[in-house]
Structure formats: C-alpha cells, structure tokens
C-alpha cells in the first residue's frame, strides 16, 4: 500500500498516535534576521514601487524619501541574509545556479536585480531630484513587487503545514504589509503636501492586510492555531493593533488637510516646501501622520515575526502535519468511496 492507501490498521483507532509527540517536519533553522529580512525586503520592494510611482506622478519629495526607504531596504537585506547563513562567506554561492523550483534561488536573483536597480535609481534621484522615471526606476519597480512577495512564496513553498497551506493568501499578506511599510517609512519623513498617496496606500494596505489575514486564517482551519497561539499569536495581536492604530493615525493625520495633489501643491506655492515641519500648516497632524507611519512599520515587523514564529509552532506540532495529510487523504478517498 502506498501512503495514500490508508488501509485499516490492525487495531482501529481514531487517529494514530504520534511518536512521543516528536515533530515530523523540522523547525526552521533561521534566525531572527530572516523575519527582519522579510520586512526590509518588503520595504525595499514596495518602496521602489512607491518611489517609481511618485516619480511618474511628479512627487519628487515622496519619490526621494521612498527611494531612500528602498535603498535602506536593499542594503540591509543582504546583510541580514548573509548573517543568517551557516557559512556566511559562501553567500555568493546563492548565484551559482538559478532554480525556478526554489523561491530562495529566484529570490536571491530578484534581490540582486532589485538591489542593483534600486541603488542606481536612488542614486540618480539623489543627484537629479526632478529626474523623470527611466529604466532603473522601472526595473526597480518591476522586481520590487516580487521582492516584497517572493518571501511569502519562500515560506509557503515548504513542508511546514501552517505556511504551506497559506500559500494562496500569504503573498497578499506580505504584499500589503510591505505596502504599509513603504507608506509608513515615507510618512515618517515626507512633508504633508506629498503624503496623500502614501497615506492612502498605508490605510488601504492595513485594510487589505487584515482582510487577507482573516481569509488566510479561515482557510487554514485548524492550522490557524499556529498563528493564533503562543508567541506567534501574541505577535500577531500586537501587529494588528499596531497596524490598526497606525491606520487610525493616518486617517486622523489626513483629515481637514489639503489633499496634497499636484494642483493643491502648486496653489500653496513654495512656502510650504520651505517649512516641511508644518505640512498643511498643521504640525500636530504632521506628527500624528509620522507616528502613524512608525506604527505601520512596527506593525509590519511584528506581522513578519508572527508569521515566522507560526512556522515554528506548526513544525513543532506533529498533529498539524498528520491532520492535514489525513484530512487530505480522507477527502481524496471520499469521491471514490
């Protein structure tokens, strides 16, 4: 009989016992650098997109801040990744091969490509603030989006049940979390009149992230416990609270202010630009917005931590592995039965 056959055992039981409760799949060997990398990679990828869009949209301040965020992201990311390696000196071996079956392999290439493009674009934008979007920007944006989501693919393309079974939703959680990070980072520093797209992005990202997370947990069924209990559960609650608070702050910081559009900006002229501390003429709202941005960033870090720890919890619980497979076997057998 093959593993799918599931013949009745000698002694019928509800579910076979585990082997002294020992996990079946191995817990990840990754260190905290990895969830941090998920965050920074997301920040980098989404920021590259934000920056490019801002460049296109003619919002150079936003663009510059976003390029800065992207640059920080792609600079910190490889450092984190290399620190996590068992043999850090061999980090270049990542580029020995390219493998479609391995999100880590493709991801390494994506990070490398994005790193190059972002560095170039960020540099060019620093030198020429009013520069129009060119190949580097488009390139950074094109690989930036997958840089933010491939990390979800990385973990869901694994044998860990709570990760693997979230493979359809997790990239959206990561994408929205990355968007929130990019928006948050931008809002920390960007003067008010150019914040509105980032504000909108931040608010929308939090909403989408919450929705995607809920769908994910619902579809995970019993596996959701990995995200809801213990350390992962706590981190997830904190992440959601921070993000929600961040979104509220963004809403609050944006009320009654100008819409920050190109027209409005023109109307206000150069004065506002000279006094970025008073966006829309309201330092309090500016502070609230910046705080909202910080909350979003913190929420995104916690979210990645929650997801990361959920993988450990899921791996540690042999019942997650067994139940998932047994349920699948039962479902597959039912039509034939």
């Amino acid at each position: 009989m093959n593993p799918k056959g599931g013949e009745a055992s000698m002694v019928p039981r509800e579910r076979p016992t585990t082997y002294y409760g020992r996990p079946i799949v191995k817990r990840p060997v990754w260190k905290p650098e990895i969830p941090l990398y998920f965050f920074f990679g997301g920040l980098a990828g989404a920021s590259a997109n934000l920056a490019t869009a801002a460049t296109f949209a003619g919002r150079p301040r936003l663009a510059r801040r976003a390029w800065a965020g992207a640059f920080v992201g792609v600079t910190v990311s490889p450092v984190l990744l290399i620190r996590d390696l068992g043999r850090p000196k061999r980090f270049l071996y990542m580029l020995r091969v390219i493998k479609i079956t391995s999100p880590m392999s493709l991801g390494a290439w994506i990070l490398a490509a994005n790193g190059g493009a972002t560095t170039l674009a960020a540099g060019l934008n620093l030198l020429a603030p009013r520069r129009r979007a060119g190949l580097p920007e488009i390139g950074a944006a094109l690989v930036g989006a997958p840089l933010a989501t491939y990390t979800a693919a990385l973990i869901t393309n694994s044998a860990i049940p709570a990760w693997s079974e979230a493979r359809l939703e997790m990239p959206f959680v990561f994408a929205s979390s990355a968007a929130a990070s990019a928006a948050g980072a931008a809002l920390l520093t960007v003067p008010g009149e150019e914040t509105e797209p980032a504000r909108a992005l931040g608010i929308a990202a939090v909403v989408v992230e919450e929705a995607a997370s809920r769908i994910m947990l619902k579809r995970l069924g019993p596996l959701a416990s990995a995200y809801e209990e213990d350390e992962a559960g706590k981190a997830d609650k904190v992440a959601r609270a921070l993000s929600a608070a961040g979104a509220v702050a963004l809403v609050a910081g944006g009320k009654r202010g100008s819409d920050g559009s190109r027209g409005a900006r023109r109307a206000r002229g150069r004065r506002a630009a000279k006094h970025p501390a008073a966006p829309g003429g309201d330092p309090a709202r500016r502070a609230i917005t910046a705080a909202g941005g910080a909350l979003l960033l913190a929420g995104a870090v916690c979210k990645r931590w929650a997801v990361f720890k959920a993988g450990f919890a899921s791996a540690a619980d042999p019942d997650q592995t067994i139940d998932l497979q047994r349920d699948r076997m039962a479902a597959e057998r039912r039509p034939g039965a």
């Binding site: 593993p3 799918k4 599931g6 076979p16 016992t17 585990t18 082997y19 020992r22 079946i24 799949v25 042999p318 592995t321 067994i322 497979q325 047994r326 699948r328 076997m329």
Partner: peptide
C-alpha cells in the same frame, strides 16, 4: 505516524 513518518 506511529513511527514519526508523515502519512501522505
């Protein structure tokens, strides 16, 4: 699973 092997 009795032996710490995944059923499927």
């Amino acid at each position: 699973e009795t032996y710490r092997l995944p059923p499927d």
